[in-house]
């Protein structure tokens, strides 16, 4: 017996989710930050930037992680007070749980005190990164 109903349901639900997903990837959202949590050089394994730090969580099964890494590491080269720290999510699972990192790449924007001010899931755009960094003093 042929029925097209399940197919229609799948395509509608998947499209709705797909548009939502596409729209949220890369957006830097302050409301997703974990309040009150402080990241330190001891936890991250590297000194923080003197003004801001972008902490990128990546995993092996993730194609956009590479693009995000290329973008962010290249962007911080002329910035003296901003650092880009790259973390393998899989080997830092406790930190991943504490910070509630769900997908990769996820990039946290933290200030000089290690407090998160926003995060981006997916590859952010250059202008979005610049705007987020400009908002951190």
């Amino acid at each position: 017996m042929k029925t097209y109903l399940p197919l229609a349901v799948v395509l509608v639900l998947a499209s709705a989710y797909g548009f939502w997903w596409k729209g949220t990837r890369g957006a830097i959202r302050s409301n997703k930050a974990i309040p009150g949590h402080r990241l330190s050089a001891a936890v991250l394994g590297e000194e923080l930037g003197s003004r801001a730090t972008m902490v990128q969580f990546s995993s092996a099964f993730c194609t956009p992680c590479r693009a995000t890494h290329a973008l962010l590491s290249q962007m911080v080269i002329p910035m003296e007070d901003v650092k880009h720290i790259h973390i393998d999510a899989e080997s830092h699972l406790e930190l991943v749980r504490t910070l509630d990192i769900r997908s990769t790449p996820t990039t946290l924007f933290i200030n000089k005190d290690g407090i998160e001010v926003g995060r981006a899931a997916g590859t952010p755009k250059r202008e979005q990164v610049l705007a987020a960094l400009a908002a951190i003093n």
Binding site: V10, L11, G18, T63, V96, I101, T104
Partner: peptide, 25 residues
Amino acid sequence: ALGAAFLNAAFNYCLGCEMYLLLVR
């Protein structure tokens, strides 16, 4: 399976990005 394949084809959805870390967690 169809939903995942469709998302990949239509939206360039990255299943490993979204699922792998949650799975490990």
